[in-house]
Amino acid sequence: MAILKLRVYFEEDDSIYRDIAIRHTQSFKDLHTAILKAFEFDSKFGATFFRSNDNWQRGREISLEVYNKTYKAPPLLMADTTIGSEIRDPNQKFIYVYDFAKNWTFLVALIGVTKEENPKFTYPTVIRTEGIAPSQYGTKSLLGDRFTDVEEKYDLAKGTEGFGTEGEEGVGDEFASSGESGGDDDY
Rank of each mutant, 00 (worst) to 15 (best):
I16P: 00
S141F: 06
E169F: 00
T82Q: 08
Y71L: 10
K69H: 04
R60F: 00
I87Q: 03
E180F: 03
D14G: 00
K140R: 14
K29N: 12
T25M: 02
F106P: 02
G167N: 11
Y98V: 10
P75D: 15
G162R: 02
E130M: 08
R58S: 12
F28A: 10
G162N: 06
E152H: 04
W56G: 09
Y154C: 06
I83P: 00
G170L: 01
D155S: 07
S52P: 01
K115F: 00
S15K: 09
A79K: 15
A47E: 09
E152L: 07
H32G: 15
D30W: 02
T160E: 09
R58P: 03
R23S: 03
K102L: 07
I62L: 03
K120F: 00
D42Y: 14
D14P: 04
F10H: 04
E86T: 15
E40G: 06
Y67W: 03
T125A: 03
G46R: 12
S52E: 07
V113E: 06
S85R: 15
F50A: 11
R58K: 14
D173M: 05
Y154R: 09
Y17M: 06
E168P: 01
F106N: 14
F49N: 12
D173F: 01
I127E: 07
H24S: 04
K115P: 01
S85M: 01
T129L: 07
L107D: 12
A109C: 09
H32C: 08
N68F: 03
D185C: 08
E65R: 12
D54F: 11
K72I: 11
L142H: 14
N55E: 15
T33C: 06
E40L: 15
L76Q: 06
A109N: 11
K29T: 11
A34H: 02
Q57G: 13
F163L: 12
G46I: 05
N55T: 12
P124I: 10
V8A: 00
K93N: 09
R7S: 07
Y71E: 07
T129P: 03
A21I: 01
L31K: 02
V97W: 01
D30E: 14
Y154E: 14
D19W: 02
V108G: 01
T148M: 01
F94I: 13
I83N: 07
P119W: 05
I132G: 06
F163H: 09
W56K: 14
V97S: 07
N55K: 12
A73G: 10
Y98Q: 11
T114N: 00
I87Y: 05
F100T: 15
E61K: 04
D99K: 05
G131F: 00
A79F: 08
G159H: 05
T165M: 06
G138L: 09
A176T: 11
F39Y: 14
D13S: 09
L4Q: 10
E166H: 10
F50V: 08
K69L: 12
F121I: 05
L4F: 07
I20V: 10
T139P: 02
E116K: 12
